[in-house]
Computed example of a mutant assay.
Amino acid sequence: MSEPAAATAADQPSPGTEEAPRRKRRGGKIAATTALLVVATGGAAAAGLGLGGGSSADEPHDALPPRTAEVTRQTLTDSRSEDAELGYGSTITATGNLSGTLTELPAAGRKITRGQALYEVDEHPVTLMYGSVPAYRVLRTGTEGTDVKQLEKNLKALGYTGFAVDDEYTDSTAAAVEEWQKDRGLEETGTVEPGQVVFTSGPVRVDTLVAAKGDRTGPNQKVLSYTGTTKVVTVELDTTDQRLAEQGRKVTATLPDDTKVDGRIAQVSTIIEAGSGEQDEAKTKVEVVVALDGAKAQKAADKYALAAVHVDFTAGRRKNVLTVPVAALLALEEGGFGVEVVKGSTTSYVPVTTGLFAGGRVEVSGDGVTEGTKVGMPE
């Protein structure tokens, strides 16, 4: 795992939260604090820079710092490699709505698509369809709403015709439903009961069976749990690393055989992990779900059911910028940051604007700061 990156100036500890060693520069009137920063974002500009108290950026000082470092020009990348788990993502529980006996259940690991039975109650199939609105009411002639349109989209995708795909449940919709019910071996009522259909976002993979064949089921009774059918990578981050988890950002995942595949942050959520004992407090984590993009990535991941992998995040990148070690920054008494520029046997304080922090270095800009400039460093 790569070294944690440093933080932006905006996220430095506030007074009283983390003590920073103070040093007063020799021969000058500027009280400075060594900046101890923990990176949380891609970069920040320090504001309000000034050299009050009669000092100026060009005022020379006789005493030299204990050591120096050079200002370098480079590409600065705020990146992090994190342990992760390859799998199918979060599980969702399917609960029953029909009262009866479970007469057929799928095997764990089976993939089920639109129009197929998720399970059977009293030998009647509970059909999987695609949509975001749960089946929460009876759909019949005269019903209107987005759930009606959702049902009609599925009927059309399954090959049924003769109705308009809109939010109105008409006699034509009822006729198509009767035809669908006939094909499924259901009573041809022309209405759809909530328990006859389960809507999911897409194809599903059965994860675990909560109930067994022959069990009684009914409203709110758990039947099985399922996931999506494509491989995803799940990462847990500390809240201080949340800057890495920007939805839509591209990442790279390294599989157990060292194959690298492209990924994209598809979902970011906050979770709370309960403490393991009375003394352990609950911890807040950021859960990141990474989608593996493309057939090539999915094929490479299909070799593994569950596996430990690594994910490389890049929160920010700045090309061809001037950088100094983070330890070279001085928090100026009047606000903002500066560096101690060393020229021969004299030094002077120069205000700088900070940019990206990463890998122990920080992007800087300001008058008198150029490539090769020597800056003071603490002991």
Rank of each mutant, 00 (worst) to 15 (best):
M1W: 08
S2V: 12
P4I: 05
A7D: 01
A7W: 01
A7C: 03
A10N: 02
Q12N: 07
P13D: 01
P15F: 10
G16Q: 03
G16E: 01
T17R: 05
T17F: 04
T17Q: 08
E18D: 09
E19R: 14
A20I: 14
A20T: 07
P21C: 06
R22Y: 09
R22N: 11
R23K: 12
R23D: 11
R23Y: 09
R23P: 02
K24Q: 15
R26D: 13
R26E: 10
G27W: 07
G27T: 11
G27I: 05
G28A: 10
G28W: 05
G28E: 12
A31Q: 13
A32T: 15
A32Y: 02
T33H: 02
L36M: 09
L37Y: 03
V39F: 06
T41M: 02
T41C: 09
T41S: 12
T41V: 08
T41R: 13
G42E: 12
G42W: 03
A45F: 02
A45H: 07
A46I: 04
A46V: 08
G48R: 10
G48K: 07
G48S: 09
G50I: 08
G50C: 06
G50T: 11
G50D: 10
L51Y: 02
G53T: 10
G54F: 03
S55K: 05
S55E: 13
S55I: 09
S56R: 14
A57S: 13
A57M: 09
D58Y: 10
E59Q: 15
P60Y: 01
D62P: 04
D62A: 15
D62N: 13
L64T: 09
P65F: 00
P65E: 02
P65V: 03
P66K: 10
E70L: 09
E70A: 15
V71H: 00
V71G: 00
T72A: 10
T72P: 00
T72I: 02
T72L: 06
Q74C: 07
Q74T: 15
T75S: 10
L76E: 00
T77A: 05
D78L: 13
D78H: 04
S79T: 13
S79M: 05
S79D: 11
S81I: 15
S81Q: 14
D83N: 14
A84C: 09
A84M: 05
A84T: 08
L86W: 09
L86Y: 03
G87P: 08
Y88T: 14
